[in-house]
Amino acid sequence: MYIDQDLCERCMDCIPVCPVGAIGIEETKCARHFSFRVVIDYETCVECGVCRRLKKCPQKAIKQVEDIPYPRILRAAFSDPTFRHASTAVLGRGTEEMKTNDVKNEFTRDNVGFSVEVGRPGVGAYFRDLQKVTMKVVALGGDFASYNPVVALMDKSTGALQEEVLDEKVLSAIAEFVVPRDKALKVLADLVAFINAELESVATISVIARNEVDGGHAFLRKLKVHGKVHGYVPYPNGKVNLGIAALKGGKP
């Protein structure tokens, strides 16, 4: 994304809309007077497209290059939710996680899923930060979800990402994996401590568990107790798959 200086009238209305603060002022000095221009910092911009979609610029001075080169295109893929990921054909962050679990049954009562979204909320992160997490997941014995666009960039045996992507910055990217249920709380404690100590950016950690047969939240009760010792508090709100897809045709 860039600002066409021939069109920009320097109204600055676009400045606050950028989620990562990439739009700013660049001072320019002439011999006699002081001036400025509005610019998008190429390194900070994550190509999320908000500035252009909001149509804040009456002059249409905010523009996108015709073809964003690789690996920079990954910024758009992981930051612009209107972008459909090539590896998974899913919009947004490119993963279905538990949203379709009543069809795919990836998360069972024997395992627990984790979703670590690096860069969220609204901070952004480099893939090198995500790599710290993916390598830690390997060390913790996590089994990566295969249907996630991060996996296409990664050596699953080590968690290492492709070298050329490490300096690309995105709004967020998600590492998803499962562990056996009896190891889940230990993994969570290690992850929280690791991320607090090692990440340059921030991350949200979420936990996916099958409900009990009666719909009960047994694992949430465990999290509440465990969190008191390990420095986190589960939110009172969350996301629940209602199992409606599994009803079709009388399937259990």
Binding site: E97, M98, S206, I208, Y235, V240, N241, L242
Partner: peptide
Amino acid sequence: EHTSNYAV
């Protein structure tokens, strides 16, 4: 409830 996603 079938499957739940908890934020920590």
